[in-house]
């Protein structure tokens, strides 16, 4: 198991959003978390990534196995494609070869272009290339296909398939369907909406 979540509650800004979330993710699997906007999908993902504490419940996850990609790609406009990538390669010390990653995400031709001059799709691809570079098995992705065209989307799916084939897994949060042809499960998060929005902290005042 790459990740197991037991009775997890997720809050944002002192308001309980989701509660009793249960699921597991094995190697080679892609799990799609669906639900309308404002439900707490991003907060759930941030909780799993360790960016915010969980309100209740348990997250079973090995250290240094997950990597998170949020709405923003974390790209520096003033750095070129290759500089952006090699920065993250330095941060994640164990990393793959840069050319391999560049080829995989079709960025070879623009490798010396500054990130500010990339198209939206290219930026997104560069952001996703960072995941591949990190060599971490569990990808936590927030709306990865936003602003990707048909071709780029297919390239992303291909990367996802090869990631899963090598023992990786991915958790994808999206409000648009992801027509991914691989072993993919999906969970509708609307089932886990918290009944009242009180966190334990807020409840202490009543």
């Amino acid at each position: 198991m790459l990740l197991k979540v037991k009775d997890l509650s997720v809050s944002r800004g002192g308001r309980m959003l989701l509660s009793g979330v249960n699921f597991g993710l094995a190697a080679g699997e892609v799990l799609l978390l669906k639900g309308p906007n404002g439900l707490g999908k991003t907060s759930l993902l941030r909780t799993l990534a360790g960016l915010q504490p969980s309100a209740e419940g348990e997250i079973i996850l090995q250290n240094d196995t997950a990597i998170y990609a949020g709405h923003a790609d974390g790209l520096k406009a003033g750095l070129s494609v290759i500089e952006n990538l090699s920065f993250w390669a330095d941060i994640f010390t164990e990393s793959k070869r840069l050319d391999e990653v560049l080829t995989k995400f079709d960025l070879m031709a623009v490798q010396h272009r500054l990130a500010v001059r990339l198209s939206a799709g290219q930026k997104r691809r560069l952001g996703l290339a960072r995941l591949f570079l990190s060599n971490r098995p569990l990808w936590l992705l927030d709306e990865p296909t936003v602003s990707l065209d048909e071709v780029s989307r297919n390239a992303f799916y291909k990367a996802l398939v090869s990631h899963c084939a090598t023992g990786g897994g991915a958790l994808i949060v999206s409000h648009t369907p992801i027509d991914f042809e691989g072993s993919s499960k999906s969970i509708d998060l609307s089932h886990y909406v918290a009944k009242d929005f009180l966190t334990i902290e807020a409840a202490a005042f009543l």
């Binding site: 941030r46 990534a49 360790g50 960016l51 240094d64 997950a66 990597i67 998170y68 990609a69 949020g70 709405h71 923003a72 790609d73 974390g74 790209l75 520096k76 406009a77 993250w88 941060i91 994640f92 010390t93 960072r130």
Partner: peptide, 14 residues
């Protein structure tokens, strides 16, 4: 913070 790299650095192995 604005371009998201701070989030990524927070969960990076540094």
């Amino acid at each position: 913070f604005e371009d998201g790299s701070l989030d990524l650095l927070l969960v990076a192995p540094i």
